[in-house]
Design a protein around this nucleic acid. Structure first.
Length: 478
RNA sequence: UCCUGGGUAGCUCAAUGGUAGAGCGGGUGGCUGUUAACCACCAGGUUGCAGGUUCGAAUCCUGCCCCAGGAGCCA
């Protein structure tokens, strides 16, 4: 009876209009459904009287196997369906007789949207080096690794918004173009409409920036923090999530000239509250990716870094280590190690020091707080000792500093003093100082490098492989 | 920017002063409900660029360009 019912159902199905679905949906459809899927061919394998096409549309890691029996489509068309080609396929979803996939599509019809000449199409079935794939960033996204990277990137971005929105944070869009050198350090990209071949000059021969578009020098932002503080002192809890630009000539696997940063800023938060939020935040977004990108994460675990799943599961549950800078220096000085730079109180922690702390001393994320004021930014709140500031750096294995933050200096006189000490022009910070003059409050915040987080989660070793089109010194292709 | 290593076929690499090769990919044919398929044959090169040394340079020397890793800067 049941069998007869199913046969009748399938006959009925075969007369139904095919349903247009993505590959991810196709795997969830009942056997017997008539479907149309569209995507890009990963590979074609021919046998006597039968061909197998792997079709991927980016909707999930796994491709859908299309089965083409001889004579169903013209031989001439089949030959043009090669790796990289874009097609639509219509057919019936059937159980697969072979291991490797639960279901497959028995093809009735194929439409070829766009061919991909196999003699010149650079993506091969076999693995390529990441260095080579960077040169073809417009095509690398069709491969397994970059498919997984950018699905995880999407999910991570969503998790970040979800975390803050669930906690009543306001998402604020801080400006991309700013007049201020926020950190007081670091090279900026200048924004100008002046004719660089023949710029207007002042009587003493200098470039006359007053004739520039904004009537003053402007730059691409290196941080939205100062503007986020404005919003924190009106909305309480806010965050920014946007592009950030650094013109440093950094050539490392951890630096980009254009990257994305998440910067929460909270009124009434002191440093311990800030630390608690950072830890809760990291655990939440890691757990969200583990729960929602299982298939992609298993790929990273198998092919990229076989410690990635266990590390993330550990981080999502273990508590972070908390130490002060002073304690960190003591630990480093006691360590039996030949340091290239011996740890000395007053000097910044070197990469080798940070890695020792997080990878060897504690083997988990470490939050280091209360750095000497000389090595941190002017806006960080001065401790009562007068020597240290309420800074915090979150260090994680392999990536190093993933979060940098602090409690902000909310006392007008102290902040003014720090601005002057740092050699900054206090007039440039008039509105920032005003925040301390009118209704000031203790407040804190931090910055998370989005791509660094993505490296940590995926195990990818180079930051240029977790952003769609990396901008680094000497490279702005695409 | 500094230090180190590298640049040879579409890709990944070999050839250590003496005829530029292999695997993969590509083409052709064969075989097979295939799974990074398999077998055979074929095509494929300004050895990063410019000079120099040498009878002879992928190989040695000089300069430049590009890539990667480490450092600094930082997220």
């Amino acid at each position: 009876m049941k069998q007869a019912h199913r046969e009748r159902f399938q006959v009925k199905c075969s007369h139904m209009e095919p349903k247009l679905v993505c590959v991810k949906q196709a795997y969830q459809m009942p056997v017997g459904s008539r479907l149309t899927v569209r995507g890009w061919v990963r590979s074609r394998r021919d046998s006597k009287g039968i061909s197998f096409i792997e079709l991927n549309d980016g909707s999930r890691f796994k491709s859908l196997q299309l089965v083409v029996n001889e004579g169903v489509i013209p031989e001439e068309l089949l030959k043009r369906i090669t790796t990289g080609a874009c097609i639509a396929a219509t057919g019936e979803l059937v159980e697969s007789p072979a291991p490797g996939q639960p279901v497959e599509l028995r093809v009735e019809h194929i439409h070829l949207y766009g061919e991909a000449d196999p003699a010149t199409y650079p993506m091969q079935k076999k693995g390529h080096s990441f260095e080579f794939l960077r040169e073809i960033a417009h095509l690398r996204v069709r491969g397994n690794t970059f498919g997984a990277v950018f699905r995880v990137r999407n999910t991570l971005a969503y998790a970040i918004h979800k975390f803050f929105q669930e906690r009543d944070f306001l998402y604020v869009h801080t400006p991309i173009i700013t007049p201020s050198d926020c950190e007081g350090a670091g090279a900026l990209f200048r924004v100008t409409t002046l004719d660089l071949e023949n710029p207007p000059r002042t009587p003493d021969g200098r470039i006359d920036w007053s004739q520039d578009f904004f009537g003053r020098p402007t730059y691409l932002t290196v941080s939205g923090q100062l503007e986020a503080e404005v919003f924190a002192l009106a909305f309480g809890k806010v965050y920014t999530f946007g592009p950030t630009f650094r013109a440093e000539n950094s050539n490392t696997p951890r630096h980009l000239a254009e990257f994305w940063m998440v910067e929460p800023e909270m009124a009434f938060y002191e440093l311990p509250d800030n630390m608690r939020l950072a830890e809760e935040f990291l655990k939440y977004i890691i757990q969200y990716v583990l729960d929602n990108c299982r298939e992609d994460m298993e790929f990273f675990h198998q092919r990229i870094d076989n410690t990635v799943l266990s590390t993330l599961e550990h981080v999502a549950t273990a508590s972070f280590e908390h130490i002060t800078y002073t304690e960190a220096i003591q630990i480093l000085q006691k360590a039996e190690r030949d340091w290239e730079f011996p740890p000395v109180w007053g000097n910044d922690l070197q990469t080798e020091h940070e890695r020792y702390l997080t990878e060897e001393a504690f083997k988990k994320p470490v939050i280091v707080t209360d750095y000497p004021k000389e090595i941190k930014a002017f806006y960080m709140r001065l401790n009562d000792d007068g020597r240290t500031v309420r800074a915090m750096d979150v260090l994680v294995p392999r990536v190093g500093e993933i979060i940098g933050g602090s409690q902000r200096e909310e006392r007008y006189d102290v902040l003014l003093q720090r601005i002057r000490e740092s050699g900054l022009n206090e007039q440039d910070y008039w509105w920032y100082l005003d925040l301390r003059k009118y209704g000031s409050a203790p407040h804190s915040g931090f910055g998370l490098g989005f791509e660094r987080m993505l490296m940590y989660i995926t195990g990818m070793k180079n930051i240029r492989d977790v952003i769609p089109f990396p901008r680094t010194p000497g490279n702005a292709e695409f």
